[in-house]
Nucleic acid binder design. Sequence first.
DNA 1: GAATTCAACTGGTCTGACCAGTCGCCTGGT
DNA 2: ACCAGGCGACTGGTCAGACCAGTTGAATTC
Lengths: 254, 254
Amino acid sequence: MSAQGAPFQPVQPVRAYQRVAEQIEDRILSGDLPPGSRLPAERELVNQFAVGRSTVREALRVLQSAGLVRSRPGDPQGAEVLGVTSDNLSRALGRLARSQISTLGELVQFRMVLEAESNRLAARLHSESDLARMSEQIERMESLSKVGLHAFSEADALFHRAVAEASGNSLLGLCARAVHDAVVEVIEQKIAKAADATVWMERSVAHHRQVLAAIRDGDGARAAQLGRQALYDYYADHVEDDTRRLLTAALEDG
Amino acid sequence: MSAQGAPFQPVQPVRAYQRVAEQIEDRILSGDLPPGSRLPAERELVNQFAVGRSTVREALRVLQSAGLVRSRPGDPQGAEVLGVTSDNLSRALGRLARSQISTLGELVQFRMVLEAESNRLAARLHSESDLARMSEQIERMESLSKVGLHAFSEADALFHRAVAEASGNSLLGLCARAVHDAVVEVIEQKIAKAADATVWMERSVAHHRQVLAAIRDGDGARAAQLGRQALYDYYADHVEDDTRRLLTAALEDG
DNA sequence: GAATTCAACTGGTCTGACCAGTCGCCTGGT
DNA sequence: ACCAGGCGACTGGTCAGACCAGTTGAATTC
């Protein structure tokens, strides 16, 4: 042990733009500066922080790349506060997916885990209004399946969001969505959904009805297994051969 | 459907610093510019990209805040490429935790899900060398428990990393680590570990041995349950009262 | 050969300028 | 009284050039 009691902590230099960014970020995260509110103009921030404009701009860049803020040229009201979103999470996961660090198989497996767990928790913790929302989205999916794939996917996303809300864990939902986006980004062009989109959408609606039924029954295991199986069926043929065992392993987890 | 065939896509302006950042990011993600390699100096990038220095700097700020590069004043070799890490994921999750969007209970529950699933998959897919690595880290934890909490935690992290590698899904490990860091950031000061750190470390070593045994036996369910239970025992008293049911629900999943 | 000095870098910051875009007011015509 | 159009005062995006403090490595000195 050290003889002089608490040793001094090493201190690394803190850049000016970091302190500016931290101050603004703290205000946003603390609820001061709520979403929709506006930051002062850059030249005004220069006065308030007593730093150069480039410093202010680098700080704003950091906040913007974190998804906390959005700025638009010529906006007389200054940068808009967006609040905390899952955008940055999605981007981070997307990068992991695009790098060799994680393969498509890992992404899909991860999604299987997240959606299955989301379903399982929803089965345990759902409320009546949650069920109503899920049901509503399934109806929308069915009606939108005649309109187009894009609208259909949107309703699909809303269904999963409703499930995530029912599970009581928004984080699960956000991550699942981020991974979903990452998967789509990586693989979308490889799957020629358009060929039998109608058939696929019909089957998807039927699958979602099954999930909803399992959640309503409080049968977490079945809800989880349904989610896993659907992902497996859909993606198993498209992942690298050597990572398919990951999916198989995840599939048999329940 | 539209009468003119494919409609034109709306186009939003792309800033110069974005294109600079994208070019560099692509090179990093594609494996060109591997971790440890160096970017040219800023003034050299100014020449190569034919933009002003502030533009280059804003691009570098974006990359740096994404955890892809790190720069240091006076470094004659230029910014260092870090590759894709979980840092940004951690920061994003930390922000979600610090805002009202997600509670500590959700974070812990999420961690329960991730670690349990990681353990379960490791039990199914592990190799002998994986087991050796886990065992080695447990030995290190035991010996380091006399040195200090910090060193202990480091070995602990390496154990979980070994588990994640055994599970075949690095994404799970990175996310688990990110959530772990976020939890630590939010709650660390609230838990007075120091008081009975020795006792806690002893119990932790015993717990890790149990997990390792379950993984070695291929008993995924038990490995998962052990992971969940340990987190529950450790954190249940520290989460908000109204989110403890989340942990309970996650606990009873297996 | 080892210690010291120094010059050529580096990234961080500031200043001041210009551009294109946006908004709001103010004017002119109806 | 109302609406259209234009004009100016902003905005953020970009560039150029300068200075500073820090690092590095080679030349210099002992």
